[in-house]
Nucleic acid binder design. Structure first.
Length: 836
RNA sequence: GCGGGCGUGGCGGAAUGGCAGACGCUGCGGUCUUAAAAACCGCUGGGGAAACCCGUGCGGGUUCGAAUCCCGCCGUCCGCACCA
C-alpha cells in the first residue's frame, strides 16, 4: 500500500520518548501480548448480562481513512466501558464485500474482484488492530464468502415461498454508467444514481422484488418505540409516506368504473375534471380519434422527460396536459366532466388517476387556469367568501362545505369521515390508506453479488433451486470484458443447468442480489458465524440480539435501516428471531471533513491517512483526539493541531503514574485530612463525570474531565504525597477511567502500578456521592441579576444564613446605594439575587 | 416551497433558566539550557489606569435572572419536494 510502516517500534520519531513515554513501543508490545492471550475472544457462555454493540460493517475499499477511525474507535470506547461495567460484550466486525467497485477494478485493471476484495480485507483487518479495537476476528463475517451468501439465497427462497419475493415487469430505474437497475431508495434528487452520480432513466424491465410494502404499516408504527435520532425517524416516516383517504369510483361512458384515490373526499362536489397519468393503461381506449395524435405525442414526451423535469416545482405555473376527448360521470353531482392526461399525475401512486378540485388544490387550480377549465368552490373559509372568478390560488384550509348537497354547512375537517361513510353506503367508495413506499427491487445485472437461486425452465417456468443444492456458487472463472454485461450471461457452464423439477434443460437466473440484502441480516450471523445448517443459530441469536447499540453514518437513514427492519420482521414471521425490531438504540457519527471544510477526497489529496499519524503519535493519542474534536454526531473539519494537546496530556499522565509506580513498594505514608478529602473529591467527581459522559455519548467532555483530573493531580503533587493511599487510589482510578479511551497506555501504566493483568478485565470504578460532595461552595451574589460578589460558604448552608451572608457583603451595599432590597431570591447551594 | 438541525473568543468547543467562554489548540511573556527542543509557570473575548461597562447571528418579548424559553427576521447545513 506504500503507506507508512505501521509496526515500527524503532520509530525515528523521538517525540514520544523524551519523558520516557514511547507511545509506539508501548502500543506494539501490548498488541502482541493481547493477540497471544486472545484477550478479545467473546465467550458465548458467560453468565454476565449481554451487551451487543454494533457498527455498520465497512465496504473493503482498500484502506481505512480517518472517517473509519471516527466511526469505529469511538464506539470501541463505549464497548470497552460496557465490558468494564460487567457486561458480556459482543462488538464484532466484518466486511460488506460484494459490490461494484470490486467489479470496476476487475474491468479497469484486470484484477479479479475476489482478489481485489480479499487483499483489501487483509490490509484493513491489520489497520483495525492498529487502532486498538477490541475485535474478536474469529467472528468476522465477509458477505462475499459462500458460507455467508448461501444464506442470502436461503432467505430469498423462504420469501419466495411466502410470496414476499416476486418477479414483475414495470418501469424501473436504470443507471447507464453502472449498467444495472436500482431500487427507488438508491435514486437521489429524482434521477441521480446514489452510487456513481450518473443520471438514471426509466426502463421497462422484468425484475425481482421484495414485498416490503406488506410491512409498511408496521414499519411506520414501530418507529415510535425506538431510541433513534429524531431525524432518522422523521426521514423514515416521510419515506414510507402513509396517507389516509378514500378510494372513489366515477363511471366512464361505457358504464365501467374508474377508480382514484383522494385524501379529500369532502371536496368531491368540487371535482370539475379528471386527470390520468400519461402511462395509465386506459389512456389509449379513452382517447378519441380527434385527440389521438395530440395525446400520443404527449405520452411520448412524458416518457422521455426525466422525473426531475416532470416533478420540478420551479415551473409549477406551467402546467402541461392534453384532453383525451372523453368524459366521465361524477356520480355525486351527476355531471359529465372531461378526462385529461397530465404528467403531474404519477402512475406509481394510488391508481394513477385523480379527481381535480381546482378550488381546493393548488396543482389542480393551476391546471384549470392554464386550460380554462371550470372552478367550483366547495369549501368556504371563515370570514371570507371565495369567488372562482377572482381567486389567485387554491384554498386548502379549514372551513365550511358549500355546493355539496346534503353536506352543506358541515365543517372541515370533521366532515371527512362522514362523507367516507356516505360514499361507502352509496357503493361509490371506501376508506383507503396509501403509501409512498414501493416494493424493494433487489435484482442487479452485475457479477459481484449473490446469485439469485432460481432457474428458468421452458416447461416448468420459474423454479426455485432446492435448499440442498445451495449455495448457487458464483463462478470465479468468469471473463471480465468492459461490455457492461454481467459475465454470468456469457458463462455457459453457469448458465446452462437442468431443471430441478422436470430434469430437462434450463437456464440459471444471471441477475445477482442488491448488496443491501446482505446488510439486512448480517448482524445475526456474527452471533454464530460458522453455523453450517442455517443462516444463524437460533439460540445464539436469541442470546445476543436485538442489537443494544447500533452506530453508523446518517447516509443509511433510509436505505439500509429500513431494509434491515423489514428483513428482521420477516425472520420473526419465519420463527427465526424473537423480536421485530433489530436495533434498540441508534446513534449516528458525523462526517470528518478535510481541513478546508470540504469533503475529504483522494484525488485532491485532502484525505488524512491515519497510519502515518499512528506511526508518529500512537493510536491512543489519535483515539483521544477524535473524541475531543467535538460532539460525535456533529463531525467537522479535521485538524491535527489538537493532537499536540492530547500528546501532552498523556505524557503528563505517564509521568504521574510512573513516578507513583517508582515508590509503590514503599509502605503507605500518612496524609493530612484536608488533602485526603481533596483527592477523594477529585477522584469521585471525575468517576461520575466520565461515566455520565460515556453513557450520554459525550466523549469530548469525557476527555475534558480526565484532563482536568490529571491537571489537578499535577498541581497537588509532592514527593510526600506519592506514597499515600488516597494518591495511589487517585492514580489507579485515573488509569482505569482512561482504559477504554487509551487501551495501550492504560495497560502499560496498570502493569507498572502492579495492577492485575489485564486492565481491560478490571471493573469500572464505583462512584460514591458522599465522597464526591463539596465541603464548601462559592456562593454567587447578584444584585438585579448582575454578578457582584462571590463568597465561600459551607456547602450545607441554610437559606437564612445564605441571605444573611449575601446582604452583609460590602459589594452588595455599594450597589444597593442605600435603597432597601425589595426581594431576595435564593437558589439552594448556588446563588442569592438581591432585587432592588 | 415544506420539514429539521445549527449560529458562542483567533480556532475546535463547554455551559439547556442561575458565575458565559470549562477543556484543548494558537499567540504572548517567563523559568531551565551554551543553544534549541521538550517540560514547567503566568497571561490570552472587547473597551478601560481602575471601579466598571459591553458581549452568545439580528430585532422584540417572558422572567428577579435568558446563550438557554416564546414571537419575528437573517445566515448556514441537511432531508423531502407535484404522493392526489
Amino acid at each position: 500500500m506504500g503507506g507508512a510502516e505501521l509496526d515500527n517500534s524503532q520509530s525515528t520519531s523521538n517525540r514520544g520518548t523524551v519523558s520516557g513515554y514511547d507511545a509506539v513501543a508501548i502500543q506494539s508490545r501490548w498488541r502482541d501480548r493481547w493477540q497471544a492471550d486472545d484477550l478479545y475472544r467473546v465467550d458465548d457462555n458467560s453468565p454476565l448480562p449481554k451487551w451487543y454493540s454494533l457498527t455498520m460493517y465497512p465496504y473493503p475499499s482498500g484502506t481505512l481513512h480517518v472517517g473509519h477511525w471516527y466511526a469505529f474507535a469511538v464506539p470501541d470506547v463505549f464497548a470497552r466501558y460496557k465490558r468494564m461495567n460487567g457486561f458480556n460484550v459482543l462488538f464484532p466486525m466484518g466486511f460488506d464485500a460484494f459490490g461494484l467497485p470490486a467489479e470496476n477494478a476487475a474491468i479497469r485493471h484486470g484484477i479479479h474482484p475476489a482478489t481485489w476484495t480479499y487483499d483489501n480485507i487483509a490490509h484493513m483487518r491489520k489497520q483495525y488492530d492498529q487502532m486498538g479495537a477490541m475485535i474478536d476476528w474469529s467472528r468476522e463475517v465477509i458477505s462475499s464468502d459462500p458460507e455467508f451468501y448461501h444464506w442470502n439465497q436461503w432467505i430469498f427462497l423462504r420469501m419466495l415461498e411466502r410470496g414476499l419475493a416476486y418477479r414483475k415487469a414495470g418501469p424501473v430505474w436504470w443507471c447507464p454508467n453502472d449498467k444495472t437497475v436500482l431500487a427507488n431508495e438508491q435514486v437521489i434528487d429524482g434521477n441521480i444514481c446514489e452510487r456513481c452520480g450518473a443520471e438514471v432513466s426509466r426502463r421497462d424491465l422484468e425484475q425481482w422484488y421484495f414485498r416490503i410494502t406488506e410491512y409498511a404499516d408496521e414499519l411506520l408504527e414501530c418507529l415510535n418505540d425506538l431510541d433513534w435520532p429524531e431525524r432518522v425517524i422523521t426521514m423514515q416516516r416521510n419515506w414510507i409516506g402513509r396517507s389516509e383517504g378514500a378510494r372513489v369510483a366515477f363511471t366512464m361512458e361505457n358504464g365501467e368504473a374508474l377508480d382514484f384515490f383522494t385524501t379529500r373526499p369532502d371536496t368531491v362536489w368540487g371535482a370539475t375534471f379528471m386527470v390520468l397519468a400519461p402511462e395509465h393503461p386506459l389512456v389509449p381506449s379513452l382517447t378519441t380519434e380527434a385527440q389521438r395524435e395530440e395525446v400520443e405525442a404527449y405520452v411520448d414526451r412524458s416518457r422521455r422527460r426525466s422525473d426531475i423535469e416532470r416533478m420540478s416545482t420551479d415551473d409549477e405555473n406551467e402546467r402541461t396536459g392534453v384532453f383525451t376527448g372523453s368524459t366521465i360521470r361524477n356520480p355525486i353531482t351527476d355531471e359529465q366532466i372531461p378526462i385529461w392526461i397530465a404528467d403531474y399525475v404519477l402512475m406509481g401512486y394510488g391508481t394513477g388517476a385523480i379527481m381535480a378540485v381546482p378550488a381546493q388544490d393548488q396543482r389542480d387550480f393551476e391546471f384549470a387556469r392554464t386550460f380554462g377549465l371550470p372552478i367550483r368552490v366547495v369549501i368556504q373559509p371563515d370570514g371570507e367568501v371565495l369567488d372562482p372568478e377572482t381567486m389567485t390560488e387554491a384554498y386548502a384550509g379549514p372551513g365550511t362545505l358549500v355546493n355539496s348537497g346534503q353536506f352543506n354547512g358541515v365543517r372541515v375537517p370533521e366532515g371527512v369521515p362522514a362523507i367516507i361513510e356516505w360514499l361507502q353506503s352509496e357503493g361509490r367508495g371506501a376508506a383507503e390508506v396509501n403509501f409512498r413506499l414501493r416494493d424493494w427491487l433487489i435484482s442487479r445485472q452485475r457479477y459481484w453479488g449473490t446469485p439469485i437461486p432460481v432457474v428458468y425452465c421452458d416447461g416448468c417456468g420459474i423454479v426455485p433451486v432446492p435448499d440442498d443444492q445451495l449455495p448457487v456458487l458464483l463462478p470465479l472463472d468468469a471473463e471480465f470484458t468492459p461490455t457492461g454485461q454481467s459475465p454470468l450471461v456469457s458463462h455457459e457452464a453457469f448458465l446452462n443447468t437442468t431443471c430441478p423439477s422436470c430434469g430437462g434443460e434450463a437456464r440459471r437466473e444471471t441477475d445477482t442480489m442488491d448488496t443491501f440484502v446482505d446488510s439486512s441480516w448480517y448482524w445475526f450471523r456474527y452471533t454464530s458465524p460458522h453455523e453450517a445448517n442455517a443462516p444463524f443459530d437460533k439460540d445464539a441469536a436469541a442470546r445476543w440480539t436485538p442489537v443494544n447499540l447500533y452506530t453508523g453514518g446518517i447516509e443509511h437513514a433510509i436505505l439500509h435501516l429500513l431494509y434491515a427492519r423489514f428483513i428482521t420482521k420477516v425472520l420473526n414471521d419465519l420463527g427465526f428471531v424473537e423480536h421485530r425490531e433489530p436495533f434498540v438504540r441508534l446513534r449516528n457519527q458525523g462526517i470528518i471533513l478535510a481541513a478546508e471544510g470540504t469533503k475529504m477526497s483522494k484525488s485532491r489529496g485532502t484525505q488524512v491517512a491515519p497510519d502515518e499519524l499512528v506511526a508518529v503519535h500512537g493510536a491512543d493519542v489519535l483515539r483521544l483526539h477524535l473524541m475531543y474534536l467535538g460532539p460525535w454526531d456533529q463531525g467537522g473539519p479535521w485538524n491535527d493541531r489538537g493532537l499536540t494537546g492530547m500528546e501532552r496530556f498523556l505524557r503528563r499522565v505517564y509521568t504521574l503514574a510512573v513516578d507513583t509506580a517508582a515508590v509503590i513498594d514503599q509502605p503507605e505514608s500518612s496524609i493530612d485530612a484536608s488533602t485526603e478529602r481533596t483527592l477523594q473529591r477529585l477522584t469521585h467527581a471525575t468517576i461520575e463525570r466520565v461515566s455520565r459522559d460515556i453513557e450520554g455519548f459525550q466523549f469530548n467532555t469525557m476527555v475534558a474531565a480526565l484532563i482536568e483530573m490529571s491537571n489537578a493531580l499535577g498541581d497537588l503533587r509532592s514527593d510526600d504525597l506519592l506514597t499515600t493511599g488516597p494518591w495511589r487510589d487517585a492514580i489507579r482510578t485515573l488509569v482505569l477511567l482512561l482504559a477504554p479511551s487509551t487501551p495501550h497506555l492504560s495497560e502499560e501504566l496498570w502493569e507498572k502500578l502492579q495492577g492485575e493483568y489485564s486492565v481491560h478485565h478490571r471493573s469500572w470504578p464505583t462512584f460514591d456521592p458522599e465522597k464526591a460532595k463539596e465541603d464548601s461552595i462559592e456562593l454567587i451574589v447578584q444584585v438585579n441579576g448582575k454578578l457582584r460578589d462571590k463568597i465561600v460558604v459551607p456547602a450545607g448552608i441554610s437559606e437564612e444564613e445564605a441571605r444573611k451572608v449575601a446582604l452583609a457583603s460590602d459589594r452588595v451595599a455599594e450597589h444597593l446605594a442605600g435603597s432597601e432590597p425589595r426581594r431576595v431570591i435564593y437558589v439552594p447551594g448556588k446563588l442569592v439575587n438581591v432585587v432592588a
